[in-house]
Computed example of a mutant assay.
Amino acid sequence: MAEEEPIEIGFPMVAAYHGQSALAMAAIVFQAQRAAFALLSPAAMPARRDISIVSGHPGPGVRDAFEAVTRAVTRGAYVVDRSLPGARFAPGHDISYSFRITLGQRTAELALRPGVLPERFFELVFAKDRTAAQERELSALKRSVAEDVLAKEPDTLFTMRAN
């Protein structure tokens, strides 16, 4: 729910807002929001003004997907907390693939399930000096992951709990 009336935001809008640099993470966060809102507000459309976000991942695809849907960054309702304990898939990197989405007085905690992001994704993302071929491979992999994630039901991608 926007300021005055409902708006429908599909992934193409999120992708257009973000661009292509972190398309896989934008798709994951889009699906995380779908799952969280279904859990927190199954009977009514949530109002943007009532949503706040804590993200364990600082990346631009994460930030932009949350911003495009909720405007949480602009509203000052978005925080990155790299210490979130769930979904820590990148050893040696202080990143959690988990999120806390609060709607009013209720919070959904979501952690990406193992295997949603293939091991090759981490190898390429965290490679120090990628070759041109590796850059192309990573770009294709991000698109492939985004397509796979968007084809699945959101609740199959995350472990979730609400309080």
Rank of each mutant, 00 (worst) to 15 (best):
G86R: 11
A47N: 04
T156L: 12
A162R: 10
Q20T: 11
I7M: 12
V145H: 01
P42N: 10
A127F: 11
P46K: 12
E137T: 10
A68K: 06
Y17H: 14
F158M: 03
A72P: 02
E119F: 10
T74M: 06
I95F: 09
P60H: 08
F99R: 00
M25Q: 14
A77E: 12
S83K: 10
S55G: 02
P118I: 02
L112E: 01
P60G: 14
I28E: 03
A72L: 04
H93M: 08
Y97M: 12
S96L: 12
A127M: 09
T159R: 14
V29I: 14
Q33I: 13
D81Q: 09
A146Y: 07
P42Q: 14
R49N: 12
A2H: 13
V80A: 04
L23I: 15
D148K: 13
F126D: 01
P91Q: 13
I28N: 09
I51T: 09
T156Y: 05
A2C: 06
I7H: 06
G104P: 07
R34S: 10
Y97E: 12
R136G: 04
A22G: 15
L138M: 15
F122R: 06
L157Y: 02
P6C: 06
F11Y: 13
S144K: 09
R106A: 05
T102P: 05
I51Q: 00
A16V: 05
D129K: 15
F66H: 13
L124M: 04
A26I: 01
V29D: 00
A162K: 09
I53Y: 00
R75T: 12
I51M: 05
D155M: 13
I51K: 01
D129W: 07
E135V: 05
P154L: 06
L84G: 00
R75N: 14
A32S: 09
V54K: 08
H93N: 11
L39F: 01
V79K: 14
G86P: 00
F121I: 07
P85K: 11
F30G: 05
R130D: 04
G76W: 12
T156V: 05
M1V: 10
L39S: 12
V125T: 01
L141S: 03
F99H: 08
A65Y: 13
R71Y: 09
S52K: 10
S41Q: 11
F121R: 02
F158W: 01
T156M: 03
P42F: 07
E147F: 09
A140M: 11
A32K: 05
G92Y: 13
F30N: 12
